[in-house]
């Protein structure tokens, strides 16, 4: 509603004693309030083929805690996990907000997208006469969104959902959308990576991305580079078994080819991370996770399909920045 129209309405209805003005103005104000809250990021979150671990990880965010994220940071307009609405009401919310916030909302996809048989392996909602597949929803919403964020390794690259033999033909969001996708990979994502990416979009716009579309803010360096046990690696002091305090390379660690800041950020209120827990990093942020990381407890050069040696050659296409950090760095 334009200013002039508003003033005229007020004049016209000011003297009528039946609350007609209130009735006309309230919906307009409500629409205004929902449309113009520039302080919060409008988000539509679609869960597709996944384990739901990324929404659980998101619940573990601290400062801001989840409640603060909802009240202060994002308007989570649709989310299968969190929304109070259900059934056809939820579906109406999705349809209305996608149109109302067209070009302004951030689409978050959690999970891979099955494409085999037109995507029938994942249906996000049904009506009496049709199935809305993840493929339909992501394709349609992806066209309307301002930003698309793939939350987790399944949504980013296919992940465990697309692990061999991948019977449902699942792929990452980037393979079904003809536009930029911000990949926040991880199995699950550290809540800081995900909440931090949303915060960047809200406060500063698009973050700088690496060659796999991931914010360099979180994925700029390898686990290996910042690992607390790097000195053991450099001295060839390797763990003999899980539970030891030496370098986990011998126990299958893929830190040398995994981009993530786990060693210094750590997890769940920053208390721990896998190598500190005397186990290997299994490379859950990688494009080829999990198939490129298995067998998990076999040293990197001997893993199936791996040619890498510590500090050695490239292991697979698309992970250029993750390898090549040998002991001399």
């Amino acid at each position: 509603m334009q200013q002039q129209e508003f003033i005229e309405l007020c004049r016209e209805l000011a003297l009528v004693d039946d609350h007609a003005l209130t009735r006309v103005i309230l919906p307009v104000i409500k629409e205004h309030l929902t449309r113009s809250n520039q302080n919060k990021l409008p988000v539509i979150w679609v869960e597709t083929n996944d384990s739901g671990d990324n929404n659980i990880a998101f619940m573990n965010t601290t400062f801001p805690y989840l409640g603060q994220v909802f009240s202060e940071m994002i308007d989570l307009l649709y989310s299968n996990t969190f929304m109070a609405a259900q059934g056809v009401d939820a579906l109406m919310v999705l349809e209305q907000t996608a149109v109302l916030y067209k070009g302004r909302f951030t689409l978050v996809v959690e999970g891979a997208v099955p494409v085999k048989d037109n995507g029938i392996y994942n249906i996000i909602a049904r009506t009496e006469n049709r199935n809305i597949t993840a493929l339909d929803a992501v394709s349609r919403l992806g066209k309307l969104a301002q930003y698309v964020v793939a939350n987790g390794t399944c949504a980013s690259f296919g992940g465990p959902t697309a692990a061999r033999p991948n019977l449902s033909g699942s792929v990452g969001v980037r393979d079904v959308l003809d536009r930029e996708v911000i990949n926040v990979s991880g199995c699950p994502t550290n809540p800081d990576w995900f909440v931090g990416t949303l915060a960047h979009l809200l406060l500063y716009g698009r973050p700088e991305l690496d060659n796999l579309g991931r914010p360099t803010l979180f994925y700029g360096f390898t686990v290996h580079r910042h690992c607390q046990r790097r000195s053991y690696f450099d001295r060839d002091d390797f763990a003999e078994k899980l539970g030891d305090i030496e370098c986990m390379f011998s126990q299958g660690c893929v830190g040398p080819r995994t981009s993530a800041d786990c060693p210094y950020r750590q997890w769940i209120n920053y208390v721990n991370w896998p190598v500190r827990a005397n186990t290997p990093c299994i490379g859950c942020t990688n494009e080829d996770f999990p198939d490129g990381s298995t067998p998990f407890f076999t040293p990197l050069p001997e893993k199936s399909g791996q040619a890498a040696t510590p500090g050695g050659a490239q292991t697979s296409p698309g992970v250029q920045i993750t390898v090549g950090e040998g002991r001399n760095e």
């Binding site: 990880a57 573990n60 199995c187 699950p188 769940i268 208390v271 500190r276 827990a277 005397n278």
Partner: peptide, 16 residues
Amino acid sequence: HEILALFGGKAPHQHS
């Protein structure tokens, strides 16, 4: 989950 991560490295999908 902080108790779990304290001993398990991370959560979900703990390691230890």
